[in-house]
Design a protein around this nucleic acid. Sequence first.
RNA 1: GCCGCCGUAGCUCAGCUGGUAGAGCACUUCACUCGUAAUGAAGGGGUCCGGGGUUCGAGUCCCCGCGGCGGCUCCA
Length: 639
Amino acid sequence: MRVPLPDGNVLDLPDGATGADAAAAIGPGLAKAALAYRQNGAVLDLARPLADAEPIEIVTDRSGQDALDLIRHDTAHVLAAAVMELYPGVKISIGPPIENGFYYDFDFPEGVAISDADFPAIEAKMAEHVKADEPFVREDVTVDQALERFRGEGQDYKVELIEDLVASQNVETVSLYTNGPFTDLCRGPHAPSTKRIGAFKLQSVAGAYWRGDAGRQMLTRIYGTAFFKQKDLDEHLERLEQARARDHRRLGPQLGLFTFSELSPGAAFWLPKGTTLFNELVALNRRMQAQRGYVEVKTPQIYASQLFETSGHWGKYKENIFVSEYEDREFGLKPMNCPGHCHLYSMQRWSYRDLPFRCAEPGLLHRREPSGTLHGLLRVRHFVQDDAHIFCREDQVPDEVAACLAFAFDIYGLFDLELHLELSTRPDNRLGSDEFWDRTEGMLAEALKAGGHEYRIAEGEGAFYAPKIDLHMTDSLGRSWQLGTVQLDYNLPERFGLTYTGEDNAEHRTVMIHRALFGSFERFIGILLEHTGGELPEWLTPVQAIALPIADRHNEAAAEAVQTLRAAGVRADLDERTESVGRKIRDAELQKIPFMLVIGDREAESASVAVRRHGEGDVGTMPLGDAVEWLRERTEAPA
RNA sequence: GCCGCCGUAGCUCAGCUGGUAGAGCACUUCACUCGUAAUGAAGGGGUCCGGGGUUCGAGUCCCCGCGGCGGCUCCA
């Protein structure tokens, strides 16, 4: 057989040759370094036979993610081997490589609880297997053989997996991989032996439902990671450590922005500086919305249950609503603005000339989120959405959606934040015909293409009533969070009977677009802090400039400078503590205040300030008037 | 909500196998009045998350709550 190589050469090999044969034919060095090979888009064991005439590529430790996935998957098997030896009776389920490592899910025998205190013993056992250089041996067996094997071992999860493979894909054989004493049902591929795992570490233990189903067994998941070199592992752990310093839950209190209390789980206490930040974002949003034809409304916080019965939330969402009773009536605290906005719309008559009605409200919402899901500002029970509902005719939808997306990019561009767009399509529990979903998904895809946006399709992730476009960002540890959303809705207009009078003088059903672009100000601020490490844009940061008198006798001149700056719209503070200027500078630097104005004898006499820029140092002395103008330019809010 | 872990001064943390609580920073006072990342000294401050229990004795052990962290399910 003849297999082409990436460099254009073609290997001549006997029929039945394997990946290992190909690597050996290229050179002894590569034969040694080879981990697997890639052909037809798939990564395969070296021991597996090559396909004729298809280009191949040998995977080595320099093959990036492919190579790391291999040894991480290997390490997951080694972990399972160690755990089975140390904890007899444990049941194994699955253990794949993931973005930065791997995990393996176990069902430990009754009464056995694993914690990270057990990691050293498990890691030691794993290290024995790595050192022993145990080969990964693949064996293809019939379904019956595999079932017999795993039934005999009491490995119920494996039995279920095989039965599902038969039911869903009608397979007749499955592959098993053995390393040392351990055999697992596994699709592969694996590196030739455990020795290829250069450095590994177990990281955390967590619960995970079997097959992601909250109704089923909770398994114990052990997370870990592996690299080819100890140095790479150390660097990875160091990066994780540095990411912790950017955690908004740490930065918020440090910078005096917000804090949390156990007396109101899932709700931030916004401190003065954080409130300034929050209000600046709300103000920015108001200006940008006004420029784009939005109008703002204010709707109640609390509604009689009837509203949520009409909207359908009482049926589908009640467990997330804070409910209370008063004078024999049941009330709910609004978890979203849409029902209120629909009701507002329904209380008057609309002409097609009035549409689109772009109805905005920075609405305060409360949701009963399960305690285990709360996460700093990123997942809270009390938050403000930059919410708006666009009531329009169906033919206006594509333009409106496109305008929402453009608006979103205008916002995120101001912060140098990169969005990931997702088009979430029809879910299983949907309302409406296939024709409806084809049409509405098509409209959203059209708007995405019209704006030239790249996007991912999130199959089945749409709302039950219509598809949506979600705007995602990642936090300091790479976890993805949804910020904005643009959703079509034909369901609420139906439920609330929302109509407009058309040119034909007939009543037509209104279409509604839900959209939040920041998402929630809380989550947006959390993400922004993590992406900037607390170095907020100069126009946004709560304290833009701070005057630092060198000695107490300069306090008055410094206070004057602050007054002048404030009058010019710069958020300025005065540090009049009796401290050394070195100390004042240090504290201002740690607070990440962008501009420091040092005022001593020279400046007081000449009505000037010595300007120091955060992270840069002294940028020179200028007359106060010039400094105010210079600062005003640099701190002026956009839009 | 589920699984595991954690909860000591405002913050970051120490406190070995149970013997009655400590550091740095912050805060207060005094002295210093200072030129671009920490002036010095003294002092105040803790129902050791809450409630039960075991014990002569609990920050330390056990149980139950509450809260947080890492995941899972769910979600802006």
